[in-house]
Simulated assay, not measured.
Amino acid sequence: MIIDLNETTVSTVARKLVSVREEGGAVALGRVLTLIIKSDYRPVEEAIEAANDASREHPMRVIVLVTHPEDASRLDAQIRVGGDAGASEVVILRAHGDAGSNPESLVTGLLLPDAPVVVWWPDSPPAAPALDPLGRIAHRRITDSSTSPEAADRLQRLDETYRPGDTDLAWTRLTRWREQLASVLDQPPYEDVTAVEVRGASTSPSTALLAAWLGLALEVPVAWQYERPSTWDHGIHSVRLARPSGDILLERHSPTHATLTQPGQPDHDLLLPRRSLRECLAEELRRLDPDRLYGRVITDGWDALRAPAETHGTAAVPTIPSDHAESAE
């Protein structure tokens, strides 16, 4: 069911939510959190669909706030429940002009009582998420540097502004890569890794985060290199781990499959698909405490990766071109 409320107020929207629950028998008792999705101008249907899918694992209220600062002041709203909202309640607020000048006041009256708050910026994140008006009321703050327009310094900004509770979907997309690499190193021969090479597309912040994680976890030199677009134009391409008995190579050949090459063993074809937006969001919503590993990677690991080779033994960091369209892992 979809209910449109044009030129309305937040209190009217809140009353309508209560009315819908009473008339339709819908209840909010099973909701475990409030997810706020913040966007400027842009349609966010893809983000809403991802939230609806994730709500089947994490029942929640979804508040979508889209601001149009240059318009005349007014607030339009839409409420979605039932089949149009998955296992959630979706409230879409379109704040025009001055109506969107205080985003915190727009959402406060719609938050679930005594429930954690997560804020997600699916397109253009604020410069410092923890200092943003919405970020200040959130337990977790989710950005996605693969969509950030500040391509040249997107990860450096996350490093400089990081606060516990921040996370980034470019990091979440690495879960399968991290699991696969950890699994390989848990098998004999149990040799130390002496060097690491990570290769990927220049538009992939996940490639840089994987290199930073490996350098932090293994405490070895990491060479982080970009592929030419004609060779590989999206996401992570390969990871090479050097050991005394020979190199381990995990190389992706398509968006869904990769090959694992190890000394003395036949090559293994692996299913290594790129993760969907729904999968990444659902994973982030499973934890409402700070992701301390991500915090170490985006600060200590990223700083070590960027350090001069002669000082820290890591490869020089390539410049991320700012004129490329962003791509996910």
Rank of each mutant, 00 (worst) to 15 (best):
M1Q: 13
I2N: 11
I2A: 09
I3V: 10
T9N: 03
T9E: 09
V10R: 05
T12K: 14
R15C: 10
L17A: 06
V18W: 09
A28F: 02
L29P: 01
G30R: 08
V32Q: 12
S39E: 14
Y41R: 11
A47W: 04
A51N: 04
N52S: 15
D53W: 08
E57N: 15
M60L: 12
M60R: 04
L65F: 01
P69I: 05
E70Y: 07
D71F: 05
A77V: 05
R80E: 12
R80D: 09
V81K: 08
V81I: 11
G82C: 04
G82H: 06
E89L: 06
E89I: 01
I92T: 14
I92V: 14
A95M: 05
D98I: 10
A99D: 08
A99M: 11
G100Q: 04
G100T: 03
N102T: 13
N102P: 03
N102R: 13
E104I: 09
S105P: 02
L106V: 03
V107A: 06
V107N: 01
T108S: 12
T108F: 06
L111K: 03
L111Q: 03
D114M: 09
A115I: 01
A115D: 02
V119L: 03
W120V: 02
S124T: 12
A127H: 15
A127T: 15
A130S: 14
L131V: 08
L134Y: 01
A138Y: 00
R140T: 09
R140L: 12
S145P: 02
D153S: 12
R154Q: 07
R157L: 12
E160F: 12
P164S: 08
T167V: 06
D168I: 05
A170T: 05
W171T: 01
R173G: 08
L174W: 01
Q180I: 09
A182N: 13
L185K: 01
D186V: 02
D186I: 02
P189G: 06
P189K: 06
E191A: 07
D192H: 10
V193A: 06
V193L: 04
A195H: 10
V198C: 04
R199T: 14
A201T: 00
S202K: 13
T207S: 13
L216G: 00
L218M: 06
Y226K: 10
Y226F: 15
E227C: 15
E227N: 14
P229V: 10
T231Q: 14
G235H: 00
H237W: 08
S238V: 03
R240W: 03
R243Y: 02
P244Y: 07
S245P: 00
G246P: 00
G246M: 01
L249I: 10
L250I: 06
S254M: 08
S254R: 09
T256M: 12
T256N: 14
H257K: 15
A258L: 04
T261W: 07
T261S: 15
Q262F: 03
P263L: 07
G264W: 00
Q265C: 09
Q265V: 08
H268T: 10
R275E: 13
A282F: 03
R287G: 08
L288D: 07
Y294L: 10
T299Y: 07
D300L: 11
G301C: 06
G301N: 05
W302K: 04
W302T: 06
D303H: 10
A304M: 11
P308Q: 06
A309E: 15
G313W: 04
A315K: 06
I320Y: 08
I320G: 01
S322E: 13
D323M: 07
H324P: 00
A325C: 11
E326N: 14
E326Q: 14
